[in-house]
Simulated scan of single mutants.
Amino acid sequence: MLSIGEFSKICGVSAKTLRYYDEIGLIHPDEINGDNGYRYYSIGQLEKMLWINRLKAYQFSLEEIGAILDWEQDHFEANIYNALNRKRRGLQEKLDAAAYTLNQISLDISNVEKGIPIMSYLQQIEVQLVETVPMNVLSIRLKLSSDHYAEGYGAYFSRLYEKIATEQLTLRGSPMTIYHSPEYNPAGNDTEFAIPVEEAVTGTRDLPGGLCAKSVLKGSYTQLTSVYAKLSEWIDREGYVLLKSPYERYVSDPHYTLPEDRITEVYFPVKKK
């Protein structure tokens, strides 16, 4: 048996953290002395603690780690393989976004050196008035916080594509995200993930067509706020008002496209004042 101090030293985790892990049920001492309350861990628990450390280093939450450690051994390898792949995709997206941001900062610095106003790029965002056609969409609508957008997009679109494959539905367009919240709320926004399909089945609804102000972004999703700002400015200047929830249509698949090459169409349903 190892004392909590010995176990702490071997695993590189403080005794305070080990006590907290005990409180939340992540890893319990193998034995607690009833007389003095001293905690002891078995040699066999070292591997479990190494798992916890490893998964923490991979940026899994403690809640996620607890769920992983509770998986049945018969399916553990398959489940951990899938979980690691999902985490790798998420981390790669963050790395790509960071690389894109670094490149944008370098471009801004270069423009300042040349005397070019940084915000002049807004003048290059084009807006056009288009008439969209009605669509039948398979969708999932829920409250989603900003911290979970990236993971949520993949998870919920994957669920929709699974339903399309299972029920042999006919695709009629690119995936879309519709934003129903009247204002931005970091704690959670009314978000609908939708994919146009031919058949009307459980989970589908009609998305009306109509007049829209449209802009196309080629680049990282971090630039979408600039497109939204440009569309809002254009709508106000041209004498229109927003009629329904704005939505984005993803022409390129983010899993197979670099951030700088992604193409996103943004639609603002409008009417004349």
Rank of each mutant, 00 (worst) to 15 (best):
Y38D: 11
V227I: 14
S3H: 10
R88W: 00
Q124T: 14
Y228E: 07
S232A: 15
I195A: 09
I178R: 01
T17S: 10
V197Q: 00
A229K: 04
I32D: 11
L144P: 03
H255M: 11
T191G: 00
Y247C: 11
V241G: 04
S181P: 00
E198P: 00
T257C: 11
E233H: 08
V127G: 04
D74C: 06
I235M: 15
S146F: 10
K114V: 11
I263L: 14
Y250A: 10
N82Y: 07
Y21P: 10
R89T: 06
Q92F: 01
R159V: 07
L62W: 03
I116M: 14
H180E: 08
I118N: 11
L84V: 05
H148I: 05
K114P: 04
Y81C: 03
R19H: 12
Y38Q: 13
E113C: 05
D147M: 14
K143T: 12
P196V: 05
K218A: 08
R89S: 06
S61P: 00
A200Q: 14
G154E: 10
R159I: 05
W71M: 02
P246F: 02
Y184D: 05
E192L: 10
A229I: 03
F157K: 10
R205T: 12
I4G: 08
F193I: 08
W71C: 01
K48W: 08
T202F: 02
A83W: 01
D206C: 14
Y100C: 03
I43N: 13
E260F: 02
